[in-house]
Simulated scan of single mutants.
Amino acid sequence: MQTLRISPSKIQQGEIEKIVKKLREGAVICLPTDTVYGLAVDAWNEKAAIKIYNLKKRTKEKPLILFIKDQRHLISLVKKIPLSAIKMINKWWPGPLTLIFKSAISDPWYLVNQKGGIGIRIPSHPVVNKILQENGLSLATTSANLSGEQSIKDIEELSPIIKEKIDLIVDSGKIPPGKESTVIDVTISPPRILREGEIKREEITKITKKPAGILFVCTGNSCRSVMAEGFFKKYWSKKQNKVEIKSAGTSVGFPSSPSSYTVQVMKERGIDVSPYQSKRVNQNLIDDSDIILVMEEVHLYYLKRTFPEAENKIWMLKEFTSNRKEGIPDPIGTSKAYYEKVADEIEGEIKKLIGKLSDN
Rank of each mutant, 00 (worst) to 15 (best):
A310K: 03
P331L: 02
S322K: 13
F320C: 00
D330K: 06
P331D: 02
A337T: 11
G327S: 10
G333M: 08
N312L: 04
K304W: 13
E326K: 11
E319K: 00
K318L: 07
I314T: 12
T321I: 04
A337I: 08
Y339H: 11
E311F: 00
P308T: 10
N312D: 14
Y302V: 06
N323L: 02
S322Y: 08
T306P: 06
I346Y: 08
T306R: 15
E311P: 00
G327L: 05
N323K: 09
T321N: 06
E326L: 10
W315Q: 08
V342H: 08
E309T: 10
N323Q: 08
K336I: 05
N312Q: 14
M316N: 10
G348R: 11
A343G: 06
N323H: 12
S322Q: 12
E319G: 01
K313V: 06
Y301P: 00
E319D: 12
K304N: 15
G348L: 05
Y339C: 01
S335D: 13
Y301L: 10
E311H: 01
A337R: 14
A337L: 09
I328Y: 13
F320K: 00
I328M: 11
P329G: 04
D344Q: 12
F320A: 00
P331E: 01
A343L: 04
E309I: 05
L317R: 02
E347I: 03
A310Y: 12
E340L: 05
R324E: 13
V342F: 09
W315P: 03
Y339L: 01
Y302T: 10
F307H: 14
Y302A: 10
P331V: 02
A337S: 12
P331K: 02
Y339Q: 00
E347H: 07
T334K: 13
I314K: 07
I314W: 02
D344G: 12
G348P: 05
S322W: 08
K336S: 04
P308Y: 13
Y338C: 02
S322A: 11
W315N: 08
E319V: 01
L303D: 14
G333T: 05
N323E: 10
R324V: 03
S335H: 14
A310C: 05
G327R: 09
L317T: 01
E347T: 04
I346W: 07
M316K: 13
Y301K: 15
N323D: 14
R324Y: 08
K313E: 04
G348D: 08
K325G: 06
N312R: 15
W315C: 05
E347K: 13
K318P: 00
K304H: 13
T306N: 12
A310P: 00
F320R: 00
I328L: 09
V342G: 03
Y339E: 00
N323T: 03
T306M: 11
P329N: 09
L303F: 13
K313W: 10
L303H: 14
Y302F: 15
K325L: 09
N312E: 15
M316F: 11
T306K: 15
Y339I: 00
I314P: 01
G327K: 08
F320I: 00
K336N: 05
K325I: 06
I332Q: 09
R324C: 03
E319T: 01
I328G: 07
